[in-house]
Simulated scan of single mutants.
Amino acid sequence: MGVNDGADSAYYLSLGYRVLGIEANPALADRLKDRFARELLGQQYILLNAGIAATEGQLDFWVSDVSEWSSFNREIASRNGTPHRPVTIPTRRFASVVAEFGVPLYCKIDIEGNDRLCLTDLTLETTPSYVSIEMSHPDADDDLELLRKLGYTRYKIVSQVTRAQPIPLLMTMGYRLPTFFNRALRYSTRKAFGVGTKDGWRFQLGSSGPFGEDTPGSWHPYDHVRRTWEALRDIDARFGTRGLAEWFDIHAAR
């Protein structure tokens, strides 16, 4: 969910999976229809132009000039003074999508503000084998607790920039450097790790990368990944505007 430019969808399709994409932004949905016209015709790809919300019907959706920030939450769409505008779009409960299309092997959740609604609409009977959700810096403990109640027992936190599992101690040491060197370190990290490959597939900066058992590093129990999140949260709290300059996904497996 949150297809954006379709980079992740293209990767999943390349692996031979049948893919359901949910994209709220009508303009992006039109581009995706052109990009995946063949896959849509062959029903290997299904695209829903709708937003996941607490109710079914229609709501105003804020389309941001930074497409990744478009959201039902105007504060998210307008962060840093970014121009944005409302469009009225159809909404779906995530439970109704699962009821219509079935339980997926993997569910990627990255929808800028309504992510948790997807987890609260899952049940023990409808949980995918693998799920990822963009990590909330301040309150990911709520998402982790929901995942645990849904029966997930293995976890990873993976950087959306380096596509590696973070080492909070090293990150904290980096933020102690003078501002210039800290920024240089973070820039070089992006340049070195922002684009990766797997089995010949080239992941562009901004795509989520591999999923499931192909995600980097070892799986960890709940307590370990919660401590990792707490350490990342504390970096933000201690260093303010010099805090986490990247985002992370929480991956969970049953």
Rank of each mutant, 00 (worst) to 15 (best):
residue 20 L to E: 04
residue 209 G to S: 06
residue 69 W to P: 05
residue 152 Y to M: 07
residue 140 A to H: 02
residue 87 V to R: 05
residue 162 T to Q: 05
residue 124 L to S: 09
residue 174 G to R: 06
residue 213 E to M: 03
residue 56 E to H: 15
residue 40 L to V: 08
residue 250 I to A: 00
residue 48 L to C: 13
residue 24 A to Y: 07
residue 231 A to S: 07
residue 13 L to C: 05
residue 185 L to S: 09
residue 106 Y to F: 14
residue 197 T to R: 09
residue 25 N to K: 13
residue 32 L to V: 04
residue 117 L to C: 12
residue 103 V to H: 12
residue 100 E to T: 12
residue 175 Y to A: 09
residue 12 Y to E: 14
residue 49 N to E: 15
residue 5 D to R: 14
residue 118 C to L: 13
residue 118 C to M: 12
residue 55 T to P: 06
residue 144 L to I: 09
residue 224 H to Q: 05
residue 130 Y to M: 08
residue 181 F to T: 05
residue 116 R to Q: 14
residue 12 Y to S: 10
residue 21 G to S: 11
residue 215 T to Q: 04
residue 159 S to K: 01
residue 112 E to G: 13
residue 147 L to T: 05
residue 80 N to K: 03
residue 118 C to H: 05
residue 21 G to F: 08
residue 177 L to N: 06
residue 49 N to R: 15
residue 195 V to C: 01
residue 171 M to N: 04
residue 58 Q to C: 14
residue 154 R to Y: 08
residue 6 G to Q: 04
residue 52 I to L: 15
residue 196 G to Q: 09
residue 131 V to C: 06
residue 125 E to F: 12
residue 151 G to C: 11
residue 210 P to I: 05
residue 214 D to I: 05
residue 13 L to V: 07
residue 57 G to L: 13
residue 71 S to H: 10
residue 107 C to W: 11
residue 220 H to F: 01
residue 19 V to L: 11
residue 58 Q to K: 14
residue 31 R to E: 07
residue 32 L to D: 05
residue 58 Q to R: 14
residue 97 V to G: 10
residue 179 T to N: 04
residue 245 A to V: 01
residue 222 Y to V: 01
residue 116 R to T: 14
residue 227 R to S: 12
residue 26 P to C: 07
residue 239 F to T: 02
residue 199 D to F: 03
residue 207 S to L: 03
residue 229 W to A: 09
residue 185 L to I: 03
residue 142 D to L: 13
residue 85 R to G: 01
residue 77 A to Q: 00
residue 149 K to A: 12
residue 52 I to M: 14
residue 43 Q to G: 12
residue 153 T to C: 10
residue 240 G to I: 01
residue 171 M to D: 04
residue 5 D to H: 14
residue 71 S to F: 08
residue 33 K to A: 11
residue 32 L to I: 04
residue 84 H to F: 06
residue 154 R to M: 02
residue 61 F to E: 12
residue 101 F to G: 09
residue 12 Y to M: 13
residue 3 V to M: 05
residue 122 L to A: 11
residue 56 E to P: 15
residue 189 T to P: 02
residue 244 L to P: 00
residue 49 N to D: 15
residue 105 L to I: 12
residue 214 D to V: 08
residue 131 V to P: 02
residue 153 T to L: 11
residue 214 D to L: 11
residue 254 R to S: 02
residue 3 V to C: 11
residue 14 S to H: 06
residue 215 T to R: 03
residue 247 W to P: 00
residue 76 I to L: 05
residue 186 R to F: 06
residue 250 I to R: 01
residue 146 L to M: 06
residue 142 D to S: 10
